[in-house]
Structures are given as structure tokens and as C-alpha cells.
Design a protein around this nucleic acid. Structure first.
Length: 841
DNA sequence: AGCACGCCGACT
DNA sequence: GTCGGCGTGCTC
């Protein structure tokens, strides 16, 4: 039917210019979809606007799409369908963004639809809900089953019902989708899609005095009349106290928040209702922005001479360079420098984006920035609701937000006039998206954005990534260094504690060395706070039988289960699988089932035993799952009510506490010996960043104690002397020798399948084909990753190394994609999934 | 990704 | 005999 109509329209239109639109649909299919623009919509359909289209077999689905291209060449292979609706009068997606989407899809080897999917907050994607309606022309009730009768009776009573509503009405045990399908077949009901915008503006209900009573005379008459009704009189008086209508009649138009007038008593509520009924008050609704529009005081920030000269230096380098690295030690006051630069960029009329890793975007930094920038600043954070994100998006389009602080995904906001992008904590690996495609690196995307919009990029870090520092050393990026701590604060004194030796001398108290133990004790006596870092959550990572060596393992993944004491269960940190804690060994029945190793939970436990009066907080994934748990822990710790904070890497990022003078680090060796070519760099960054939490404010010099079995390791020596340059020189040599980044680009290909043989076959074939084309020095693997099975899928990794300058990366990527597609069409290997991760970390 | 179509086991 | 399992193929 639909197609017949389409054909009819097609012949009508053929004389005139007919428009076709190539649309980006939010699905992982590597092409655009061509739709026909109805004649009446020709002026409305613009590039970058969102449209609604029917999709799938018998138009069973409704989707939000973005117009990427307009043209008038009809597709030859199929009959294009019509766009059903245009959502935006003005494009919500800028030309820059479309360019960005295309670039990302190509660079990160994914589909534009996948980019669109992560780029748009889901509030901008339409939700469609199937509704069912009784067909008035239906006249064969005798054909129905009992269940169908029930549904149909309900449907006759209502104009239309959703599947969910029908499910509720039909009661338990009825298969609503199946029943509806059969009813549709019998032409008893009609199913249609109800489309609605997901974004809902926040409305608040207000009241105002009817204009009849704005004049003094009338008002007095009213009050006199209410003399015998004191409750109502009181409500009117209360309104007048908040809104001095006599002094300024225009205030009455804005009215008063209904909740203020109601206060809390029911009497005033009913009085108000009566007053509204009698036409004294009128109620109305207005849209309330979710971000309070109270303009915060604009605070002047003062730079120290040192910061001032850093800022000037950066500006000077921007004359020659598009990208500048600000290498400033922890606590050197980089934020003030950023603020200065942001103000300058805003003053010149350009937009500014300030990127922070998720965990560093805390209330601490937001409040600080808000004091300076007030409501000109937008905040884009994954913890925000969807409606809030849509408001920020629209605020950028409208120009309300010239400046946005945000996480990784804020590179997708519709900027069109960026002057400056700051990537703070530039080395942070959380800038790289791991799981759903596009597997992008926000720092690198930011650089592309800046390139297109002629904006400058400032990368900031105390421990720059080797890639970035290397570019700076080559002179491709500018470099500004800040090697003095802010105010009188000095860098903490970092000491290594030999746990091997303490164990021999039997000085260890469980996981705590005597040195750390004493330091904690003294710190508490001084009423100063301590932070303990152990990058492992849970109580202990292993549970093992002493008699037979049985170890608790996950059913679905090739990993040991972690014991969580608080919830009394064993958990898999890869798939979330949970098992009860066995009291006896499942293999041999022995009762000697022990935990091995320790996580944050165990440390917390031991602290309670050692220091019974102390107040200890734990901050890791398990204690921050609730919505505001993270903020709460930080606030509680800030308030000084807590002596010790135990945490995972979460505590290493951007937190700024005044009263912390001791940092203890456990198990540094595990970080250092991680089997990965970046392990040394990572360990340096992580340990330096945690150390930086100590002694950030004037007063005493902070102390950092690193527990290690081998204090002689060169990397530890570099950490205690804060010798970033030494680390760089050594590491960069190694990277060069083995042709790792920054001397090459890496693409990791992961092959996955439930059957190990199939998975390995596909991986082997892919690796062979790539080796043939690229040479064996450029292809590593296939190799089983550290965890060879996750969620019952067997994994194999292939690493492709491409020299930066010698090889055409684009060509290599498209060749890889060809080979992947080839394997995916192979009968025996078709259900394997192959994931490409470009610039994997 | 979702959704329909299509061919083989445990149930009214 | 059917309901429903998820393999496989397609989407303008």
C-alpha cells in the first residue's frame, strides 16, 4: 500500500525537482539511507536537522535521523520512502559536527550511525511507542479466543493503549504481543506508532494576582472583603509580601512560585484554591531551566607572578603553535592559569571547551569555576540527566553557553566557533572510550575539532603521556613548564618502605608496614588526614583451598572471583557474576578455605581493628555506585570528620584536600610489573598523581610512603625524585627500539566467539592475511589476552603496528576492514565478532 | 542494533 | 500436533 502510494507520488513529482535526503540513522550499518522529501517539507529539511523516518520491514520502526546530504538523484535500486516529520526548524547539528562524525567513523573504523548514537544525548533521539487501537470496521467477533476478547473489550473502552497498558489490563500470563499480532491479522485492531520528543522542559506552576486587583483601590476593597475570611486574607498578604505589586506592578506579571505561597499547611492550599476559583489569583506555568539562573558573583582570580608568566608564555606560544603542553607539577595551580586563558578566549568572542576526565569533574572544580563564570558556563557530565544534557546542547546552539566544562563526550557538543580547548589531565586513559564504538580518544578528537575551527589546544598534565611529551620535545607542540607548587606548599617527601625486609623482621602488621602504621598513628594524633591507595577493590582477589589449591573462578570468564566481605559473596569483576561464599572447599571438602591478597575492603577492615576509634571511609566502585555517593564521600572527607580515606585509582584524580599530609601506597609492584608496554609510564603517572594529594596547602610538607618489595627498581627512584624527564628518556628509547607509540600507531583487533576453535581460526586467518600484506614486523598475534574468556566468549587479540610516516594509514584501515568483512561472510566463521580499536591504549 | 523469517525440541 | 528457541539476513 505504502509502496503503491510512493509510486503514485513519484510519477506526480517527476516533472518537478524532487529532493532526496541522505540520512544518518543511529544504527551500526556502514552507509547512509536515502529518503524522499515531501514537497511541503522542502523548505524545512535542512542539513543538520533531525527528522523522523519510518524504517524496517513494513515500516515497523520509527527513528530519528540526521540530514547529512540533500540532492535530487533518485536511487535506482529501490523506492525511497518519505520523511515523516522534521523536528528542528534550525539544525541542531552543525556542519562541523557532520564533518566530525564522518571523520570519526573513518578514523576509528566504525559507522557514522554509531557516532551519532553516542554523540546525541538520548533526549534528542525520539522515542516511539507502539499503540493499539480498536478497528471500528471490525465485525467478526466470533473468531476470537477468550484472551483476545478480553483485550478487545478493553480497547473498545479506550481511544488507544500501549503494549504496557494492555499487559497490565490483561493480567498475568497473557502474551500481549502475540495476542495483538493475531488481532492485527484478524483486522480487529490497528497498531500505530506514537512519536514524541523525549526532552521535556521543566515546568513550574506560578500564581499571580488577577489584573483587576493590581490597582490600590481594588486591592483595598478585596482585603476588606476578606476581613471575615482570615485564612484567605493571609494568603493574599503573603503574596504581597513577596511581590510588592504597589511598588512595581510589572512584578505581578512574573508571579510567584506556587509552592512558596502554599508553604506547608493545607489550609493555605485550600484557601489559595478558593481564591483562584473566585478569580482573585490566576495560575500559569512557565518553563524553568534546570540549571539555576541565579548569577553567581563573578570572583576575580589573582595569579601569582609565576602563574601569570606561565599564562603569558602560553599565549605567546599560541602565536606560533596550535597546541601547547602545560607541564605543571601536582599542586602548581594549573587551574588558575586555565581560568585566565578561558577569560581571554571568551573576551575575544570565541567559545571555550574545558575537558576533564570523568572522575576529576567533581563539585570541587565546578564550584570553583562557577564562582568565576557564573551561568555563562555549561556543565556536561554523564551523571546529569538526559534532559539536563539536552539543555546544555541547546544552550550551546543558542549561545547561552559560550563555555562548557565537560567530560569525554562533550567533544560532540555543537560548537561552531571554538577559540580554545583545554584538555586537563591529558594523560588520563579514561579519555579513550573503550566499549561501544566509536572507540575514540577525546584528546585526539579535540585536536581535530580545534584544527577545523582554528582553535588553540592546551594540554595540561603533571605527568604527560609519552606521546604528547614527545611531540613537545620535537617542537611540534609548544611547551610551558610549571615546576613550583602554589603558595608555600612544597612537594611531598616520598619514601620507599621495604616490605620484604619488614616481613623478614616480622614487623608487618598484616598489609601495613611498621613505618606506615606509625605514620598513620602520628598523623591521627596531629588531627591530620591520610589517604591510602590500593588499586584493587573488594576484600581479596582470590579465595583458595589450602589443602587442594582449588581457587574460586568465574563460570563465564577466565578469572578468579573476588571476595566481597560486606555483601558476603564472590564476584567476577568482568561479567558481574556472583557466587555464594563456600564454607568448605567445593573440590575436597576441606574447611581451610582462605582468602589471598587484599583489596580496599580488607584495608578498611584492618584499619578498624588497628585504630578502633578512627573514622575510615572507603571510596571505590562499590561505595560510589549510588547517585551522589561520590560527592558525599568527598564532602565528608573534606569536612574533616574522617581520618583516613582508603580508595582505588578513583582517589588519584584531581581531588584537592587541604588537610591531607600522609599518603600510603600499597602494592606498587603490581602496578609496575603489569604485562603491558605502557606499564612503566602508567605506574609513574598513577603513583605521582596519588603522591600529589599530599601537602597541597601550605603548612607542613606532606609525606608519601610507598610500600614495595624491591625499592631498588629504577622507576621508584624516578618517582621519589619526581624525575619525569629521566623516565621519558628511558621509556622513549624503549618505544623506539620496539616500534611502539609514539613511533607507530596501534590498531588492536579483537576476535570473539563462544567456541574457542572458531575464534582462534578466524583470528589466525585474519592475522595471516594481514601479515601477508603488511609484513610480519607489523602484525603481532593472534594472542590470547590476559583474560582469555569473558562472558563465555573466547578472545584473541591481533595488534597491528603502523609506522607514523611511512605507511598510508587510511589504506591500511580500509584493507583491514575488507579482510574483516571477508571473514564475516565466510560460512564457518560468520558469527564471530571482530572489533577494531584504533589507537588502543 | 532490532526485527522478521525460518527451521528443530518440549509441551497443551 | 503446536509454541518458541535463536541462527541468519536485511534495513532506504
Amino acid at each position: 500500500m505504502e509502496d503503491q502510494l510512493n509510486t503514485l507520488f513519484a510519477t506526480f513529482d517527476s516533472e518537478e525537482v524532487t529532493f532526496f535526503a541522505d540520512l544518518i540513522l543511529p544504527i551500526p550499518v556502514p552507509r547512509l539511507f536515502t529518503y524522499r522529501v515531501p514537497r511541503g517539507m522542502a523548505d524545512l529539511v535542512k542539513i543538520g536537522a533531525r527528522v523522523i523516518v519510518p524504517f524496517g520491514k513494513n515500516n515497523s520502526r520509527v527513528m530519528t535521523a540526521i540530514v547529512a546530504r540533500l540532492h535530487n538523484s533518485p536511487p535506482t535500486a529501490y523506492q525511497a520512502r518519505y520523511i515523516s516529520e522534521v523536528l528542528d526548524e534550525y539544525p541542531l547539528v552543525t556542519g562541523y559536527q557532520l564533518e566530525l562524525f564522518r571523520w570519526m567513523a573513518e578514523y576509528y573504523m566504525c559507522c557514522v550511525g554509531e557516532v551519532m548514537n553516542v554523540a546525541l544525548p538520548s533526549g534528542l533521539k525520539i522515542s516511539s511507542q507502539s499503540k493499539v487501537q480498536y478497528n471500528p470496521d471490525f465485525d467478526y467477533p466470533e473468531l476470537l479466543t477468550e484472551f483476545e476478547e478480553v483485550l478487545l473489550t478493553e480497547l473498545k473502552k479506550h481511544p488507544a493503549l500501549s503494549y504496557e497498558e494492555l499487559g497490565r489490563l490483561a493480567g498475568e500470563g497473557s502474551n500481549v504481543p502475540a495476542l495483538i499480532k493475531s488481532l492485527v491479522g484478524k483486522k480487529a485492531v490497528i497498531v500505530f506508532e506514537e512519536v514524541r520528543e523525549k526532552y521535556i522542559p521543566k515546568m513550574i506552576r506560578k500564581v499571580r494576582l488577577h489584573t483587576n486587583y493590581e490597582e490600590r483601590e481594588q486591592l483595598l476593597v478585596l482585603l476588606n472583603r476578606l476581613e471575615k475570611l482570615p485564612k484567605q486574607q493571609e494568603v493574599v498578604m503573603r503574596y504581597l509580601r513577596h511581590v510588592p505589586v504597589q511598588m512595581n506592578p510589572s512584578l505581578n506579571q512574573k508571579g510567584l512560585d506556587k509552592t512558596i505561597l502554599n508553604q506547608d499547611d493545607e489550609i493555605s492550599q485550600s484557601s489559595l484554591t478558593t481564591l483562584v476559583k473566585n478569580g482573585v489569583f490566576e495560575t500559569f506555568e512557565i518553563i524553568q531551566p534546570r540549571f539555576s539562573d541565579t548569577l553567581s558573583p563573578q570572583v576575580e582570580i589573582k595569579l601569582t607572578d609565576y602563574q601569570r608568566s606561565a599564562s603569558e608564555n602560553i599565549m605567546k606560544q599560541f602565536e606560533q603553535q596550535n597546541i601547547v603542553l602545560l607541564h605543571g607539577i601536582t599542586g602548581s595551580g594549573k587551574t588558575e592559569v586555565y581560568i585566565d586563558l578561558i577569560q581571554q578566549a571568551l573576551a575575544s568572542g570565541t567559545q571555550v571547551l574545558y575537558l576533564l576526565p570523568e572522575i576529576a569533574l567533581t563539585a570541587q572544580i565546578v564550584v570553583r569555576l562557577q564562582r568565576v563564570f557564573g551561568d555563562k558556563m555549561g556543565i556536561y557530565h554523564s551523571k546529569f540527566s538526559d534532559n539536563e544534557r539536552v539543555e546544555v546542547w541547546k544552550g550551546v546552539v543558542s549561545g547561552q553557553y559560550q563555555f562548557v566544562v565537560g567530560v569525554r563526550s562533550s567533544v560532540f557538543l555543537p560548537f561552531d566557533n571554538l577559540g580554545l580547548i583545554i584538555v586537563d589531565e591529558e594523560h588520563e586513559t579514561s579519555y579513550k572510550q573503550h566499549d561501544p564504538a566509536p572507540r575514540y580518544h577525546a584528546r585526539d578528537v579535540a585536536m581535530m575539532l580545534a584544527h577545523w575551527q582554528q582553535a588553540k589546544v592546551l594540554l595540561g598534565s603533571a605527568t604527560p603521556s609519552l606521546e604528547t611529551y614527545y611531540q613537545a620535545k620535537l617542537g611540534r607542540y609548544g611547551l610551558v613548564e610549571l615546576f613550583q607548587r602554589f603558595g608555600d606548599a612544597t612537594l611531598p617527601n616520598i619514601l620507599l618502605v621495604n616490605t620484604q625486609q619488614e616481613k623478614r623482621q616480622k614487623l608487618m602488621k598484616h598489609e601495613f608496614s611498621s613505618v606506615l602504621y606509625t605514620a598513620l598513628e602520628m598523623n591521627m594524633e596531629r588531627k591530620e588526614q591520610s589517604i591510602l591507595f590500593q588499586n584493587r577493590r573488594g576484600y581479596s582477589p582470590y579465595m583458595q583451598c589450602e589443602d587442594c589449591d582449588w581457587t574460586a573462578e568465574c563460570n563465564n570468564c577466565a578469572v578468579s572471583l573476588t571476595y566481597h566481605q560486606r555483601d558476603a559473596e564472590l564476584r567476577c569483576h568482568y561479567c558481574g557474576h556472583k557466587d555464594p561464599v563456600p564454607r568448605t572447599c567445593p573440590a575436597c571438602g576441606s574447611t581451610k578455605v582462605r582468602t589471598i591478597g587484599f583489596g580496599t575492603e580488607k584495608l578498611e577492615d584492618q584499619l578498624q581493628i588497628f585504630f578502633p576509634g578512627s573514622r575510615v571511609l572507603r571510596m571505590d566502585l562499590d561505595t560510589t555506585r549510588a547517585k551522589n555517593a561520590y560527592q558525599q564521600i568527598i564532602q565528608e572527607f573534606e569536612s574533616g570528620q574522617v581520618d583516613i580515606l582508603v580508595g582505588t585509582q578513583m582517589i588519584t584524580k584531581g581531588l584537592d584536600f587541604d588537610n591531607v599530609s600522609l599518603v600510603g601506597i600499597f602494592d606498587a609492584d603490581r602496578l609496575i610489573h603489569f604485562p603491558d608496554f605502557r606499564a612503566t609510564e602508567r605506574a609513574f603517572q598513577m603513583l605521582t598523581q596519588v603522591s600529589g594529594r599530599a601537602g597541597r596547602r601550605a603548612g607542613r610538607q606532606g609525606t608519601v610512603l610507598i610500600q614495595t618489595a624491591n625499592p631498588q627498581q629504577p622507576i621508584l627512584q624516578k618517582i621519589i625524585t619526581n624525575d619525569y624527564k629521566g623516565l621519558f628518556e628511558e621509556e622513549i628509547q624503549e618505544r623506539q627500539d620496539f616500534n611502539y607509540p609514539p613511533f607507530s600507531r596501534l590498531i588492536k583487533l579483537t576476535v570473539r566467539h563462544t567456541d574457542k576453535i572458531t575464534s582462534s581460526k578466524a583470528a589466525q586467518r585474519l592475522a595471516d592475511e594481514l601479515t601477508d600484506a603488511l609484513g610480519s614486523s607489523r602484525v603481532l598475534g593472534p594472542e590470547e589476552p590476559l583474560v582469555e574468556r569473558i562472558r563465555n566468549q573466547f578472545l584473541f587479540d591481533i595488534l597491528v603496528k603502523i609506522e607514523r610516516d611511512k605507511v598510508n594509514v587510511k589504506a591500511v584501515k580500509s584493507y583491514i576492514q575488507e579482510r574483516i568483512n571477508d571473514i564475516l561472510t565466510d560460512k564457518g566463521l560468520r558469527q564471530v565478532s571482530i572489533i577494531a580499536d584504533v589507537d588502543c591504549l
